[in-house]
Design a binder for these strands. Sequence first.
DNA 1: ACAAGTAGGCACAATTTTGTATCCTACATA
DNA 2: TATGTAGGATACAAAATTGTGCCTACTTGT
Lengths: 107, 107
Amino acid sequence: MIKKNKTAYCPVDYAFQRIGGKYKGRILWYLKDGIMRYGELKRIVEGITPKMLTQTLRELEEDKLIMRKVYKEVPPRVEYRLSETGKELIPFIDQMRIWGEKQMAME
Amino acid sequence: MIKKNKTAYCPVDYAFQRIGGKYKGRILWYLKDGIMRYGELKRIVEGITPKMLTQTLRELEEDKLIMRKVYKEVPPRVEYRLSETGKELIPFIDQMRIWGEKQMAME
DNA sequence: ACAAGTAGGCACAATTTTGTATCCTACATA
DNA sequence: TATGTAGGATACAAAATTGTGCCTACTTGT
């Protein structure tokens, strides 16, 4: 679990703390187009285990970057979407993506 | 040490791998205005130990985000600056900073 | 009857990242 | 002579993060 109550030394530090972690960037990115179910995320976020997916989603939710909606159905059905705060992160994740693409192309 | 040869699953993943870590964002940010010496960074990057500063700078250098210049003097003198690739990250880190400031203000 | 899908929980283990303490050079100043 | 300085290195220890394996309940499909 990510330690809570870490104090950030500056806004840059703060932002990195909130979206750091192995999968957070990708999850936020995949949610940019709308709603996703747990299982869809599991398939699309390559390399993630169920445990880490659950854990990361919970952290993003506590951090108010995403919203979680549970339907009382069987089989279970849970949907995730970006919060307004989370949506604000998309433009710069997009910049990261563009930079990353360029770097990867340059090898 | 940050494990090398991790394969990135996508450009977003790749970018986060390269600038993830506890201090990388801040160091890149502090270097945005030009050249900094080791000791200056040590004073300005709050909470960092000499070991972590050295280690982080080495990683950034291997990753070609910064450049290191050693003067053969005594006492030693080492300067760090952003590479062109590193400079390209600044707009994005700046967006993070703005987002972070807003979030911190909202408490 | 039995497996598969759905969204996880839990205990534990391995890995990765970060921190602490101590040491080094070679010259300068007190 | 002792101490300070700059920029580290190194061994070891602790903390944080991530991974493994096994478990649940219920329903639908074969």
